[in-house]
Design a protein around this nucleic acid. Structure first.
Lengths: 360, 360
DNA sequence: ACGAAAATGGAGAACGATCTACACACTTTG
DNA sequence: CAAAGTGTGTAGATCGTTCTCCATTTTCGT
């Protein structure tokens, strides 16, 4: 039978009286601070064990740290974010820190509310994943709190950034298609209402790089971009628009794998097939992309490495570092089976990269 | 230029002295408690506005509430969980409560650590999504803290549960296949090391219901289950095992859409096609399932409704309700294009349900 | 053996809110 | 006109920690 009223929680005072010492001593043992004898330590630890004591995070927060890292996520759906979280928690695993996540949403108001919620909860550090707030707003937060921003390229002096070299990645993607012989290559881009300098946004960089590489290969007049969103629905809509062009494009560079899935759906629905009629390449190399029946060619960026970097940078900042650090990972091309030479062009065997066959 | 040292945060004392009133008065205004004149209220609110004051959650936690709902998620990947979070945040939107999420992982140790982290942070309520801890452990938490468990079917007296009627859903799935004329129907199940009564676990219920329905139709000798995991990889491995049976099964009921994707990959890789050679049905009806080139037949359970229910139940419990409530949603069949009559059997036009064509 | 230095344990003031109890000024009522 | 009631504001204890002193004990060099 359940006790009807809640038990009072075990506090440091309970431990102290149980171990017949002062609360200060207990506190020292917990924090393993200087000035406590081995005997005292054992005694206190035994008492802690016996009573099942756990320090009260809010009370700690009043004086010191909360041992909490707040993570702002635009949404919880993205499989790519999951990797980052994994990298981060891995990095925090043998510290006392814990990551908590909060959903930001797509409006400025929602994001502001989420950031405020983390600040109010006195997190010791904050990771903002692809935030849409203005740089000024982020710096305002960062002045009060160790902050790392993931996915934006700006080089702030008050917060660290961790990002993928999207310029290199997009170049890899477009060059891969061009190397295969494609000329009518189109792009599916992402639209949001971020208040950042456009050139700092990863989706803008991917789109601009696409245009630049096209121009570099004298394909300026083939440039076509559908700006929807980095989601299955966005990719579907974008691809439908682009496939209606005539002459029809022979390759689609989707700015994200989720969008590439949608694009593949649109290709399929139009009675075409990939890569026979239209090649499709994505970005992010999410796990689903490796499935044999999807086998999406993609650009891999190591989310786990990024997450670990975030953790390291935050811990450093909490320990007192103030100069800003900007960490970037280099993406790589993963060729699978949604890209090939355009129809009518003989496959050049020398340029073919060995395709993956097994699942990762 | 950034100020080098952090600003001291605005406190209730600052507001009080700025508005020339006592801190108690400010506190009353914030909580809109009884005993403040409209004039006082205006004055204090002006001061709050002017100084940009925000109450310090940890300080509040020492006496009253944290206005925080903790959500334990096994992993952040699942698109289905995202729906639940959306429903929950929607329900909390016009309260002062905020949901924070924490990743639990797949081991008991990791889950325990995550739950402890939430309890230590003094959340006002906790949602555990498909936890693997023992019922005793969950009840221990629930005695101290309003708790809702999602995805487990047990009827605890101390915590609420919200779940999908997995028995009905699995029956829908298997019956759909049987109605189409299938007999060699196999199942992909999930294995975890949960310390719950097996009959309370959704994946066990789905598997057991599969067996029961098969038996009910005198198909006991056709029963075959591959127990892997509800993931793309698990579905792939499971389907590979099952497709090796001879005679080859004509239909696969995967316990989750993610696993169904993996199963489709295996089908494809074996040189077969769905639904011509093998029908595949999933469970969860995640968004990707609706993509035209996937068009996975699935069982829909309304995650948003479940999330809203969780929010409502938690708020009620925080307000003082103690009797346990158990809320279940009824799933429905969504027929798309991965299921059809088995090869060699004429399609019966009367039993054909109209398939979806557009994206949801 | 003596005094200085080092090690150890504790007292008590924060931290920033909440909330009970009460004081004070006005009304209302008998 | 006194007594009682009502509305408004404040004082001050409290929550569970951390952390800065400070007092006491132990160690050790000479």
């Amino acid at each position: 039978m359940a006790t009807s009223h809640r038990r009072r929680r075990v506090t440091i005072i309970d431990v102290a009286s149980h171990a017949q010492v002062s609360t200060a001593a207990v506190s020292k043992v917990i924090r393993n601070a200087y000035g406590v004898s081995p005997a005292m330590k054992d005694r206190v630890q035994a008492a802690i064990e016996e009573l099942g004591y756990r320090p009260h995070a809010s009370a700690r927060a009043m004086r010191g740290r909360t041992f909490t890292i707040g993570v702002l996520l635009p949404d919880v759906t993205s499989p790519f974010f999951a990797e980052i979280i994994n990298g981060l928690t891995e990095q925090l695993a043998d510290t006392d820190y814990q990551a908590i996540m909060i959903q930001g949403g797509t409006t400025h108001k929602a994001e502001r509310r989420a950031i405020d919620a983390l600040v109010d909860r006195q997190v010791d550090g904050i990771l903002m994943v692809a935030p849409i707030s203005s740089r000024a707003r982020l710096e305002e937060v960062a002045r009060d709190l160790p902050t790392v921003v993931l996915g934006r390229h700006e080089r702030s002096a008050v917060y660290d950034t961790v990002f993928d070299d999207d310029d290199a990645g997009a170049e890899l993607a477009v060059n891969h298609l061009i190397d295969l012989g494609h000329r009518r290559i189109v792009h599916i881009a992402h639209q949001d209402n971020a208040r950042a300098r456009p050139a700092d946004l990863l989706h803008v960089i991917r789109a601009e790089t696409y245009k630049r590489v096209m121009r570099d290969h004298d394909l300026a007049e083939e440039i076509a971009v559908a700006t929807t969103s980095y989601s299955a629905e966005g990719g579907y809509d974008g691809a439908r628009q682009l496939l209606n062009r005539s002459p029809r494009p022979t390759a689609i560079f989707a700015g994200a794998d989720q969008a590439a899935f949608g694009a593949l759906a649109a290709v399929h629905e139009a009675g075409l097939s990939a890569p026979a009629d239209v090649s499709v390449i994505g970005y992010d190399n999410i796990r689903l992309a490796a499935l044999p029946n999807i086998a999406l060619t993609s650009i891999d960026q190591d989310g786990v490495v990024m997450g670990r970097a975030v953790g390291r940078l935050l811990l450093e900042r909490i320990e007192g570092r103030t100069p800003a650090v900007h960490f970037s990972v280099t993406p790589s091309l993963v060729v699978r089976r949604t890209t090939a030479a355009p129809p009518g062009l003989a496959q050049d065997p020398t340029s073919a990269t060995s395709a993956e066959t097994a699942m990762s």
